[in-house]
Design a binder for these strands. Structure first.
Length: 487
RNA sequence: GGCCCCAUCGUCUAGCCCGGUCUAGGACAUCAGGUUUUCAUCCUGAAAACACGGGUUCAAAUCCCGUUGGGGCUGCCA
């Protein structure tokens, strides 16, 4: 535990797009940490950029995080003692602190035009210097600034970055040092009622009594700036942990160009939230032992900030697929059927019993929920196929296999299968009845045409399983069709 | 360019903090074999890595320095 302060962490998505799985992973690590430590997990919507933020995206993010399996103790949808949890509703709080900084001469209005700033930047770059604000407006008198503001002149608010060395502890990387003279006076607000994330975040983390900020590595260089702002405002410092980034296969920061990055797309592609959860937890973190498959509870038990990786991790879709397949295999057919309803034609749902039996049989062949549609289509409607499909495509050493022989074998099977009572019509009994025949007539010679005739496909589950799913009546019907095709 | 972060099989990683037990372990992917009428599952096996160079030490994947490589940031986005 962290002294006597209750551990509080937050996830702070910006509703400027659909839920990105990088955001989901950051949220996941925060959640894991909070749950493992008995702390609070807060959802805060960072919508200070009103131009790009939208309520639709906020909804998408919240729904996505719920689907993913996370829950939070405080947030815009559930309330809490430190609300509101939407930054756009906390403007007076930021204004108060902004004004305080100005009053204390720790911040000032800057009237430089964008064009001027761009010129400055180019000039510094040309000299091989790190571009930073020139400080032109830094020493404007308060009277003058206020007069210009009153006149309606456009201004932003800049923070007087002290020329010192800033240090902070990163729980994953250790002590990090930055030379603040290189930072320059950063803009912290467009105006008193429009703060920038660097400022609003620092204020909210304090106001919401956040103890640990766990976020992506891309924020490392923002941290010294926020530390300086916290100090200027007399806030307690929070502890930081910067997570390694999730990388695209080309090792660059994930962007839409290389991969689908929206969590919802993965849902639509038929990935299970549990698999995604497990997969993302393993990206940049690893347990003590060699376990690969974890429930959320097990993850909470095992989770330790110290076992987080420092280097970026490539998103490996292969491993996700494998994990997803593992999870699918563990689900009971009835439950899996329930999850599959949105991925199949609605007619398939007419015969619920048939549907569930089909799911049971195809379960271990599926990697994604979307696979089911192609895998199981033949159960619901026999595809049209060519007679040749029924002939065992066997190595030439067995030459005798031909149309005639196949026809005879199918007739034999039809006769034998007809004898089995409807009540006994299951895979085990069917196998018991047919396997002895294969000892006389050959396995492939009998089983291939059987299976092909039942499925109408080159690839499918085994014939006994198919027959059980289809039932006696449909099985016989399909066999007769096969026989007709050969006659 | 500047600042910062990072560096074990193709990928995710164990080992590194507290040097010897590492002829570097596991998983995914790949390949081969087995089970099998087909596919998938499952089982067995193979190939596959300590970026490089210096140091410290009896001993370095492990500690230090440098090089190289990769990444992030460098916005009145977050």
């Amino acid at each position: 535990m962290d002294g006597f302060r209750k551990i509080r962490v937050r996830m702070a998505p910006s509703p400027t797009g659909p839920l990105h799985f990088g955001t989901a992973r950051t949220a996941l690590f925060n959640w894991l940490f909070a749950r493992a430590q008995g702390g609070d997990f807060v959802l805060r919507i960072e919508d200070t950029d009103i131009e790009r933020s939208s309520p639709e995206y906020e909804k998408d993010i919240i729904n996505g995080l719920k689907w993913f399996g996370l829950d939070w103790d405080e947030g815009p949808d559930v309330g809490g003692n430190y609300g509101p949890y939407r930054q756009s509703e906390r403007l007076e709080i930021y204004e108060k602190y902004l004004q305080k900084l100005i009053d204390e001469n720790k911040s000032y209005y800057c009237f430089c035009s964008k064009e001027q700033l761009e010129l400055d930047r180019q000039a510094m770059l040309a000299q091989g210097l790190a571009p930073k604000y020139s400080g032109r407006c830094r020493n404007l008198s308060k009277e003058e600034s206020e007069k210009r503001i009153a006149n309606g002149e456009k201004a932003v608010i800049r923070f007087k970055t002290p020329g010192i060395e800033v240090e902070f502890i990163d729980l994953i990387r250790g002590k990090l040092k930055f030379d603040a003279t290189l930072i320059g006076d950063i803009v912290i607000a467009r105006n008193l009622r429009s703060p920038l994330f660097i400022f609003s975040g620092a204020v909210d983390d304090f106001e919401m009594k956040i103890t640990h900020v766990i976020r992506g590595e891309d924020h490392i260089s923002n941290t010294p700036k926020q530390v300086l702002i916290q100090r200027a405002l007399g806030f307690d410092e929070v502890k930081y942990a910067h997570l390694p980034l999730i990388l695209a296969p080309n090792r660059t920061k994930l962007s839409k160009r290389y991969l689908e990055t929206s969590l919802n797309d993965y849902r639509k592609q038929g990935y299970l939230p549990e698999a995604m959860f497990n997969f993302l937890a393993l990206l940049g973190w690893h347990p003590k032992d060699e376990q690969e498959i974890f429930s959320a509870e097990e993850l909470i038990k095992e989770f330790d900030l110290k076992r987080i990786q420092k280097a970026g991790a490539i998103f490996d879709i292969n491993k996700l697929e494998w994990l997803n397949g593992q999870y699918i295999k563990k689900i009971k057919p009835v439950d899996l059927a329930g999850k599959l309803t949105e991925f199949v034609p609605s007619e398939w749902l007419n015969n619920k019993e048939l549907f569930i039996r089909a799911v049971a049989v195809e379960k271990e062949r599926m990697k994604k929920l979307t696979d089911f549609k192609e895998l199981a289509d033949f159960f619901f409607e026999l595809p049209d196929y060519k007679a040749e499909l029924l002939i065992w495509p066997r190595p030439k050493e067995i030459e005798k296999i031909n149309k005639e022989k196949t026809l005879n074998n199918l007739k034999l099977l039809l006769e034998e299968i007809s004898k089995i009572f409807k009540a006994d019509f299951n895979a085990a009994n069917l196998e018991k009845a047919i396997i002895p025949l294969t000892e006389v007539w050959g396995r492939g010679e009998l089983l291939w045409p059987l299976r092909a005739g039942l499925s109408g496909k080159e690839i499918s589950p085994g014939p006994f399983e198919i027959m059980e799913v289809l039932g006696k009546e449909e099985t016989l019907r399909r066999l007769k069709i096969a026989i007709e095709k050969l006659e």
